[in-house]
Computed example of a mutant assay.
Amino acid sequence: MATPPEKRNEKIENAKELLAELSNISPSSLARKEELSRDINFQEAVPYFEEMLDIIKQLNQRDISRLTTSQVNQIIAGCNNLKGHINNVQDFELNQNSPADVCTQIINQVKAAYDSVMEPLTIPLAFTATQATDYARIEREAKGYHATMREEAQSFKTLLDNYRQEAEKALNAVKEQAAEAGVSTNAQIFLTESTAHANGARTWLKATIAISGVTLAVAIVFVCLSFTYKPADIPDAIQYVFSKVILLSVLSFGIFWSAKNFRSAKHNETLNKHRANALGTFRAFVEGSDDPAVKDAILLQTSQAAFSNRRTGYEGQEADVQSVNPVVEILGKSLHRED
Rank of each mutant, 00 (worst) to 15 (best):
D291V: 04
E269C: 11
L300D: 15
E287I: 09
L299I: 08
T302Y: 07
S303H: 11
N272E: 01
K295L: 00
P292F: 07
F307G: 11
G313V: 04
P292E: 10
S289P: 08
T312N: 04
A306N: 04
K273F: 10
K266C: 09
T302P: 07
V286I: 12
K273L: 11
E287S: 12
E287D: 15
T302G: 10
S264E: 13
K266Q: 08
V294G: 10
S264Y: 13
K295W: 06
F282H: 09
S264H: 13
A284K: 10
K273N: 11
Q304C: 07
Q301T: 00
K273Y: 11
G288P: 01
K266S: 05
N272T: 03
G313K: 01
L271P: 05
S303Y: 10
G280F: 00
F285D: 13
S308M: 15
Q317E: 12
N272S: 01
V286Q: 08
S264D: 03
S308Q: 15
L279R: 04
A293T: 06
L279Q: 01
S303F: 02
G280S: 10
P292V: 05
Y314F: 10
A284W: 03
A265K: 05
A293N: 02
E315T: 09
F307D: 14
N268W: 06
H274K: 14
A265L: 05
L279K: 09
Q301D: 01
N309T: 15
H274D: 14
G316F: 00
V286S: 12
N277Q: 12
A276Y: 03
H274G: 13
R311K: 11
N268T: 03
K295G: 02
G316M: 00
A276L: 05
G280E: 10
K295V: 05
G280Q: 05
